[in-house]
Amino acid sequence: MRTRLAALTAITALSALVAGCGGEPLSDPVRSPSTSSSSAASPVPSPVPSPAATSLDDPSVPLAERLAQALATVASGESGSGDVRDAALFEQTTARSLARGPRGKADEVLGALGRADRAQLRSDIAAARELMAMTDPQPKLPDWRIVTPPTPGELRPLYRRAQRETGTPWEYLAAVHLVETRMGRIRGTSTAGAQGPMQFLPSTFAQYGAGGDINDPGDAIMAAGRMLANNGAPRDMAGALWAYNHSDRYVAAVSAYAEQMRRSPAAYDLYWHWQVLYRHQSGTMLLPEGYPGEKAVRIAD
């Protein structure tokens, strides 16, 4: 699977953090990103199979079995390895596909999974439904840079420090980070001017950033913790998240990811490996690390 992902990459590739953000990075743009004429003019490649190849893409194997295999690979594999990346992407794209399809199909797959895997997939399907309902596919590719994010081991202490100092549960900070910039993979400014890994307007960051750097992960995560605490966290997480982004769907999606991370330590590693997927009018585009130098890839999910 590692070779498959490398080959794929080689071939090619919400209202506000109080008032504006860059978009739902991995799945669907929640708020329209700024776009460049060069990205708009780029030809859209033909679809290629999802990077999770071999047995994960074998239609003769029941989908629930392949999902269980993928989640087991993420839980037991080496962080950042090709096999783990492929397995996480398989779970990610499968959850999106089931979220778009008939509920009966999703229920059938969920019913065939073990208890822990069922909880993981149910949360991811629910969140995907909320996020995809917030936007339409976009006509242009975004004017973003996709970079290698800090490692899971580097980010976790930042979340936990913010929890200690502000009271905001670290899982909610990680979930906001996931939805806003796919845990730091996306570099870009929204059309409203939101910036950085937690997508703050500069004016809002000035209020909560304590003189820090809006683009620094630690400073941005701490600012998010302060802002959420100022608006009700940890007692009223729904109200705090709604202040962060005035959307009930956003609140539901972030809460689903956060509560799953509370239930299962493996969920954090799974979410860290999720890739940047973008809803283009021609289909789902994977924006690989190195984009726009590495071209977007239309995937079959």
Results as ranks from 00 to 15, higher is better:
87 A>K: 00
84 V>L: 13
38 S>R: 15
66 R>K: 12
37 S>M: 06
91 E>I: 12
11 I>Q: 15
110 L>E: 00
79 S>C: 05
76 S>F: 00
106 A>L: 01
24 E>P: 10
97 S>A: 11
98 L>E: 03
114 G>F: 02
98 L>G: 05
102 P>Y: 01
103 R>Q: 07
70 A>M: 05
107 D>M: 08
8 L>V: 14
94 T>H: 00
92 Q>D: 08
37 S>H: 09
111 G>K: 03
49 P>R: 14
78 E>N: 09
29 P>N: 12
94 T>L: 01
31 R>Y: 11
102 P>H: 01
31 R>P: 03
103 R>M: 05
23 G>W: 09
64 A>K: 04
15 S>N: 12
79 S>P: 09
41 A>G: 15
23 G>S: 15
99 A>V: 10
82 G>S: 04
96 R>Q: 12
27 S>R: 12
91 E>M: 11
19 A>H: 10
12 T>S: 14
103 R>H: 04
49 P>D: 13
20 G>K: 11
26 L>P: 04
89 L>D: 05
12 T>K: 10
55 S>N: 05
103 R>N: 02
39 S>K: 05
49 P>H: 09
59 P>H: 05
21 C>W: 07
110 L>N: 05
27 S>W: 10
10 A>R: 14
90 F>V: 07
58 D>V: 09
87 A>R: 06
23 G>P: 06
88 A>G: 10
61 V>H: 03
33 P>F: 09
98 L>V: 08
105 K>E: 15
52 A>I: 07
83 D>S: 12
33 P>T: 12
53 A>R: 11
90 F>G: 04
82 G>R: 09
53 A>E: 08
90 F>S: 01
97 S>R: 11
13 A>T: 15
7 A>N: 13
30 V>E: 01
114 G>D: 11
75 A>E: 10
